[in-house]
Design a protein around this nucleic acid. Structure first.
Length: 593
DNA sequence: AAACGCGACTCAGAAAACTCGGC
DNA sequence: GGCCGAGTTTTCTGAGTCGCGTT
């Protein structure tokens, strides 16, 4: 990997490009010439060449014997109408289709695409019968699973060929993997949580919708035959290869590089370096916001309390969002009065704030936190004479907050606190939990626990896996069986020892040794199973992946692996190792975040 | 100056696809 | 030695953050 060289050259003791300006900037806030990342006018590449997006296959009409029924009677649909019908039919056993908003949005959008005749007939969704179409797709899926080994192999090869052709680009002379090289197929929009637009029709992306970005002197990608690109541009200040506007939310979608790429890797590295710089000033910042809790200015007080939440609870910044366009979720600055309850005393603790709100992806944040008295008093003040639907921090937003943070440290924004607190927590937890005497399994449990502490801090949740109870039971069965084996082995050892007492012959002695070994092995296996069970139970509703991938400086984990003799593959799978190649390359066991 | 709207990027969990160990 | 299913990895695309230009 060519850039490994580059990164190793940038390792310890060697100035890192984006850190040099910081050093020079010390004490000279506002010197924009040295702003982070702007050193080269924001140029992201010199050369970019690619094939353009891979367009998902066009719709194939249903066979004639698969019918749609309206009001109990078969009805042949036009191809366009039928295609949209299949989107709904495919989702029939999904909870989405039971929701009224989903149904309404779908039906409205569907009717828009119908022919006038169809519009005249199809007036009510509840008279539509998609079950035969649904069954067709279920069967088709089954059939695909049942294909022979050779047929599957053939499909795999075709997919590999597409990946090979469209999945890579040339960036500054080097072949890099693309993250998402396929256009998103048409379908029904599925938002998270209570999304007002769920069920709307997401239209097919055509070459005419796509903007290509590449370098002028590169081989410009050919649009599919008979088609044209919307535009070809040569903008080297951005990292995307292609983009289009998505019709449901009217937002841009991009084709970008894979996390394993140099471009993304360096950005990731940079992110952690900013978080590490926060480490040096965080004590000062904390002292400052604590002082600001008593400020005369209400705006400052709100800023100080919000920042305290962001720091202590790792809340997200909380930008405003357009009402009615998305699910009603909030972050710190957008918290409303209804999202917190104040308890002067609760469960033996004083000044308890009870948080209950929906955050990103409509994941519930529920937490009871004992806070410092001034914070509590301030919150009472902020809530005074307000309705439940009013903003808690009415004089604050993310722009004001981030401007303030920028003054405290260059490159500092609200999200840096999440990165910083996540990484520092991992480092501290690893220090506290790792027992050098443990075997690898034991150490991995400690690692997972440290990781889990971070996931809890960041509120990374998952729904309990459908198979959880069952697999827990299976594990318990295994444990019980192992216990029995162990008991039996103990008895046999005792028997062997007695026999040796009697005979004192070499054969009996060897037998004792053999039984001892067996017992040891069983004990170890049992311990391992117990560890597994604990780990599993504790992980039931917690998602470790997000923090591992996005918040934890990989160098902490790599240093830990090296220090305690844990193979890196036990912590990071192949993809993760590719993403963190920059860190694997430069980190030794002494690394400190 | 501050509100706004857009653009570009990171972060997010669900679902699909794949793998691998036990029978 | 192939099949099954649980566990793991990869894909997918929606949901945030934050900066910038415009008004």
């Amino acid at each position: 990997m060519y850039w490994r060289l580059a990164t190793s050259m940038l390792g310890r003791g060697v100035p890192r490009p984006w850190l040099v300006p910081t050093g020079l900037r010390t004490g000279s806030v506002g010197c924009s010439r040295w702003e982070e990342e702007k050193s080269a006018d924001g140029v992201k590449w010199k050369q970019l060449e690619h094939r353009g997006p891979y367009f998902v296959p066009l719709y194939e009409p249903l066979p004639d014997d698969v019918q749609f029924y309206y009001d109990g009677k078969p009805l042949k649909l036009s191809v366009a109408t039928e295609e949209i019908a299949t989107f709904y039919a495919k989702m029939l056993d999904h909870e989405y289709t039971t929701k009224e908003i989903f149904q309404t949005n779908f039906f409205n959008d569907w009717r828009k695409e119908m022919t006038p005749q169809e519009q005249k007939i199809i007036k009510h969704l509840d008279k539509c019968d998609f079950r035969e179409i649904h069954k067709y797709f279920v069967d088709k899926n089954e059939a695909r699973k049942a294909l022979s080994k050779e047929e599957k192999q053939k499909l795999k090869e075709e997919a590999d060929k597409i990946q090979e052709e469209y999945g890579y680009c040339i960036l500054d002379g080097h072949r890099e993997k693309i993250g998402n090289f396929k256009t998103e197929p048409p379908g029904l929009f599925r938002g998270r949580g209570d999304h007002p637009k769920m069920g709307m029709l997401k239209k097919r992306i055509m070459p005419e919708d796509v903007i290509i970005n590449c370098s002028k002197d590169s081989k410009i990608p050919e649009p599919p035959v008979g088609h044209k690109w919307k535009e070809v541009r040569f903008d080297n200040t951005v990292t995307w290869l292609a983009s289009w506007t998505e019709n449901v939310q009217n937002s841009l979608k991009y084709i970008m590089l894979n996390p394993s790429s140099k471009l993304k890797g360096e950005k990731d590295w940079q992110k952690y370096e900013v978080a590490r710089r926060l480490k040096d000033v965080v004590h000062k910042i904390r002292a400052q916001y604590q002082a600001d809790w008593k400020s005369k200015e209400m705006k400052k007080r709100q800023r100080a309390v919000a920042l305290y939440f962001i720091d202590k609870l790792a809340l997200r910044a909380g930008n405003e969002k357009e009402e009615g366009e998305t699910a009603d979720t909030v972050g710190c600055c957008s918290l409303r009065v209804e999202h917190i309850k104040l308890h002067p005393k609760l469960d033996g603790q004083e000044h308890v704030v009870e948080f209950d709100f929906l955050g990103k992806d409509s994941i519930r944040y529920y937490n009871k936190v004992s806070v410092e008295k001034p914070v509590f008093k301030n919150l009472q003040l902020f809530m005074k004479n307000k309705d439940p639907g009013d903003d808690l921090f009415d004089r604050l937003n993310t722009v004001i907050l981030n401007k303030h943070l920028q003054n405290l440290m260059n490159g500092l924004t609200a999200k840096v606190f999440r990165t910083y607190n996540a990484s520092i927590t991992l480092q501290e937890q690893l220090k506290a939990l790792t027992n050098p005497e443990d075997n690898v399994a034991g150490k991995l449990l400690s690692y997972n626990r440290a990781n889990r502490a971070v996931a809890i801090l960041c509120n990374h949740q998952r729904s309990t896996p459908k198979t959880f109870e069952k697999s827990m039971q299976n594990l318990q069965t295994k444990i019980d069986a192992k216990k029995q084996q162990l008991e039996k082995a103990e008895q046999e050892l005792k028997k062997a020892e007695d026999e040796f007492e009697d005979t004192k012959d070499a054969k009996a002695e060897a037998n004792v040794q053999k039984k001892k070994k067996l017992l040891e092995r069983l004990k170890e296996q049992l311990a391992k199973l117990n560890v597994q069970a604990t780990d599993k139970e504790e992980n039931k509703q917690i998602a470790l992946g997000t923090s591992k991938l996005n918040y934890l400086d990989p160098r902490i984990s790599i240093a830990w692996c090296k220090k305690f003799g844990v193979p890196i593959e036990k912590i990071y799978n192949k993809t993760q190792r590719a993403k963190f190649a920059w860190a694997i390359d430069m980190t030794d066991e002494d690394f400190e975040f």
